[in-house]
Design a protein around this nucleic acid. Structure first.
Length: 858
RNA sequence: GCCCGGGUGGCGAAACAGGUAGACGCAAGGGACUUAAAAUCCCUCGACUUCGGUCAUACCGGUUCGAGUCCGGUCCCGGGCACCA
């Protein structure tokens, strides 16, 4: 064994060794329990950033740990290779998206291998390859025929200067990021997945996922947004006849029906369009509402505006006329695109009514007490109805039931359950994505591409500028109708990249399959036992993947209901952002590595000129604040990078990036190396295996086995690696104090070092491989089992209790481990520390918490 | 704006089920070794203190013998909001 720790030598050697042995090749084996450990695959943005290192190290620690515990482990890796950044890079650097993407994949694969991940690289896949996306297209055609996919109009961000559709990210302050033009909303035809058909199952299925973090399930529940309410019809004619025209609204607060003072409809609502026909001012307002982005965050924060349509509807019970407003805050896509407004009992309606001097009519008061009138804020709680006709005096809950019944009898509404969840629009007017396998025939309509003609291959090597080149490639889009044989055209839109990432976890089971999407191997490996990824995917990706799993199940492709049994959502690695304002009003984002602080101000290192700080955000390409781990790995090695990342914070917590402490992690590995070196230099010894002992050795062995117990629990149950590492550090500190070179002491030291090396192996595998071979010549790390706890070593006779008087710590008390409660009380009361603070005052009671403390209350 | 998290020493954090606040590490200061430096090793390290203690887990209030942990409210930071992935 070398006296000096040299990661630059031992790490490549270990990686070469594992490669040659195919150490991490996963083979289906029904004789062993399987463990499918999956980290979310990366988008090949160019270089790894610290968030990737965190994600993949967590996954690798869990995979290697379970391997040591005897599981048949699968840990694959691949590339989420379609997407917008490739098009942006292609425009900026005048390269084809495909070659940019493949070059990034090659570079990042090298970086991942350098991290020493225990990945089965034979299963690697890239979603931009036809052998992957052809099965996505195949499933699409089946779902299209089944009616799970349909076409309808949808609103997008339209850049009127570049004549292109913009992603929400590309709209900055209501303007296109490249052109600077004011963005407009535009309706275009798109394909949709009927995810709302699965809303109920997606919601109830969350209850069967005990291995998911509660916060993720809460977010998904809120996103699906099941609400029980009442659909209410407001007739358009004063003397309503059954079958006459009505305006439908949905509300969860039917109890406030008598407080309705206006009805608000979305700008796209047919009633608004009708009213605008003879009203230029209204038409102009509706046009104004159609400006700006479609993002909900923008809609929700903009100024609430509205305009009277002049149309009146009639209250279903009182027959009073109610004005219909067009309001920019009403969403066409939710409910009926119309809401009944009750200013007295809804904050948003209250503000709107005040702005437009509309009446505010309270009809619900608290169960105990009265409303102070006039209202200064909306009263939004439920309560007791008043001024509500026959319903006055009823509770809100009761009134909702009764009102629904009466409406039903009048044929003017009924109880209804709605979901906030909307169908999933997957059409993208972009080039670098999976082509939607549809053929448009002027005589036969929209037809799915026949299975034998799949895949519809995306032409690579295409140069692009603004917009999708597919729309300008008739040689690609012209085709023959599979039904009538006439001249037809291919769909030129591509799919949302969330579609690819919704099923890749299943394809890893059989990435080489050329005759189908999935085979029986998928049912061996699925569900994923442990899924690890950023919390930013809590809703969209994880919901879409759950949905897709159910679609595949209903096609008979998989046999389970849910794809991911256990989920670990790692916190974001965030870093400062810096920028400069460019003359054209755009921002130039600068990497934190190129920026430094001089005299209290941030400047660019290159030119010394000031830059602006933009706050901390998750590391991303768009904000250029990713920190490349490469220099860290080059300088200290992969083990140090892994150890440092795992020690910095618990996985679920967000982590502000700082490299302070890297030295410490490296120092720890050097210390470990030295400790093993000095031990083995004295000759081979076998580990302590029972028999005689001394008090210090018994105490040390108790700590050793407590540590094994704690580290196992930290990794397996708590998935908290920082405390596992801290416990091992404590153990090593205690061992450093252990004196003597006699055979007994050296045997205990051998036992401890073997355990330490094995416990650290999932985190820092390269160094542990060498250290284990030094400790036990001929031993193979990746075939070694996890250390076991010697229960006998844990036994103790005496414990220390905290002694409190009135909840304040006053001393400590040593008692026998099996001491009776009375004896503990007596010992506590008679102790000098307690006597001193009792000062003769009467003792009210004594609280004894077994194994913890005694509290004397005076 | 809405939904979900978070806030503890100079810094990253620990305290797992309401029971010793600050484990472990970083930085800093002091010392040993060295011609010197690096490396390594040892010690100190929340604030105040009359050296008895007192205060302290973003802020305000509550429950409890006892609150970083539970409840109500406020402020700040991060994630998501359906076309970034």
């Amino acid at each position: 064994m070398d006296a000096i720790y040299r990661p630059e030598i031992i790490e490549p050697e270990a990686q070469r060794h594992w490669d040659e042995k195919q150490a991490f090749k996963a083979v289906e084996d029904t004789s062993k329990a399987k463990y499918y450990c999956l980290s979310m695959f990366p988008y090949p943005s160019g270089k790894l950033h610290m968030g990737h290192v965190r994600n993949y190290t967590i996954g690798d620690v869990l995979a290697r740990y379970h391997r040591m515990k005897g599981f048949n482990v699968l840990q694959p890796m691949g590339w989420d290779a379609f997407g917008l950044p490739a098009e942006n890079a292609a425009i900026a650097n005048d390269v084809a998206p495909a070659s940019w993407t493949y070059a990034n994949i090659d570079y990042m694969r090298g970086q991942l291998k350098r991290l020493g991940l225990g990945v089965d690289w034979e299963r690697e896949l890239a979603t931009c390859k036809p052998d992957y996306y052809r099965w996505e297209q195949w499933l699409f055609t089946r779902l299209f025929e089944k009616g799970v996919i349909y076409k309808k109009m949808a609103t997008v961000n339209w850049d009127p200067v570049d004549h292109t559709v913009l992603a929400n990210e590309q709209v900055i302050d209501g303007r296109g990021w490249r052109s600077g033009a004011l963005v407009e909303k535009r309706d275009i035809p798109m394909y949709f997945f009927r995810i709302t058909d699965y809303a109920e199952e997606l919601l109830s299925g969350l209850d069967d996922l005990p291995g998911w973090p509660e916060r993720v399930k809460t977010m998904q529940r809120n996103w699906i947004g099941k609400s029980f309410g009442v659909e209410i019809h407001f007739p358009l004619a004063e003397r309503h006849q059954t079958g006459g025209e009505v305006l439908k609204v949905f509300t969860t607060r039917a109890d406030t029906l008598y407080g309705v003072t206006y009805v608000a409809v979305a700008a796209e609502h047919p009633l608004a369009t009708r009213a605008a026909a003879g009203n230029p001012a209204l038409a102009e307002f509706i046009a104004e509402c159609k400006q700006g982005s479609v993002a909900e965050a923008d809609l929700a924060t903009m100024e609430k505006k509205g305009m009277d349509t002049g149309i009146r509807v009639y209250h279903p019970f009182t027959n009073e006329a109610v004005p219909v407003y067009v309001a920019n805050y009403v969403l066409m896509g939710y409910g009926e695109g119309a809401v009944m407004a009750v200013p007295a009992h809804d904050e948003r309606d209250f503000a709107f009514a005040q702005k437009y001097a509309l009446p505010i009519k309270p009809v619900v008061k608290p169960v105990a007490g009265e409303l102070t009138l006039p209202l200064s804020v909306a009263y939004v709680e439920q309560g007791i109805l008043f001024d509500s006709g026959d319903f006055s005096g009823r509770t809100s809950q009761d009134a909702i039931e009764k009102i629904a019944l009466v409406l039903k009898a009048l044929n003017l509404g009924e109880r209804r359950t709605t979901y906030r969840l909307r169908d999933w629009g997957i059409s993208r007017q972009r080039y670098w994505g999976c082509p939607i396998p549809i053929i448009h025939c002027p005589t036969c309509g929209d037809l799915p591409v026949p299975a034998e003609q799949l895949p519809v291959t995306l032409p690579e090597g295409v140069k692009i500028d603004v917009g999708s080149p597919l729309k300008r490639m008739p040689e690609w889009s012209n085709c023959v109708c599979p039904k009538c044989g006439g001249q037809a055209e291919r769909e030129t839109d591509t799919m949302d990249t969330f579609v690819e990432s919704s099923w890749y976890y299943a394809r890893y089971a059989c990435p080489d399959l050329t005759t189908g999407m999935l085979d029986g191997r998928a049912n061996y490996w699925l569900p994923v036992d442990q899924y690890i990824g950023g919390i930013e995917h809590a809703i969209l990706h994880l919901l879409y993947a759950r949905f897709f799993h159910k679609l595949m199940r209903d096609e008979g492709l998989v046999s389970t209901d849910e794809p991911f049994k256990n989920l670990l959502t790692q916190g974001m690695v965030i870093a400062d952002t810096f920028y400069r304002d460019l003359p054209d009003g755009k921002k130039q984002w600068l990497n934190p590595a190129d920026v430094e602080q001089r005299n209290g101000a941030w400047v660019l290192k290159a030119d010394g000129q000031p830059v602006l700080a933009g706050g901390s955000e998750k590391m991303s390409k768009s904000k250029n604040n990713g920190v490349d781990p490469q220099s860290l790995i080059d300088q200290y090695g992969a083990d140090t990078a892994r150890l440092f990342m795992m020690f910095a914070a618990p996985p679920e917590q967000s982590l502000e990036w700082s490299d302070a402490g890297v030295e410490g992690a490296h120092r720890f590995l050097k210390r470990l190396w030295k400790m093993v070196y000095e031990h083995v230099e004295q000759g081979v010894v076998s580990a302590y295996s029972g028999g005689e002992s001394t008090e210090p050795l018994t105490d040390f062995r108790r700590l050793l086995h407590q540590t094994i117990d704690k580290v196992s629990d930290d990794i397996e149950r708590r998935k908290q690696f920082n405390t596992a590492i801290a416990a091992i550090m404590e153990l090593m500190n205690a061992m450093a104090k252990l004196e003597g070179d006699d055979a007994l002491t050296r045997g205990v030291r051998q036992e401890a070092l073997e355990a330490i090396v094995l416990m650290l192996a999932p985190i820092v595998p390269h160094i542990c491989r060498i250290l284990l071979k030094a400790l036990k010549p001929g031993a193979c790390l990746i075939a070694s089992p996890w250390p076991t706890v010697d229960q006998a070593a844990l036994v103790r006779n005496e414990i220390e209790l905290m002694l409190q008087v009135n909840g304040k710590l006053r001393g400590k008390l040593k008692v026998a481990v099996d001491a009776a409660k009375d004896a503990i009380e007596q010992a506590a009361l008679s102790s000098p520390e307690a006597q001193k603070h009792i000062e003769g005052k009467p003792v009210k009671k004594v609280v004894v918490v077994p194994g913890r403390l005694v509290n004397i209350v005076v």
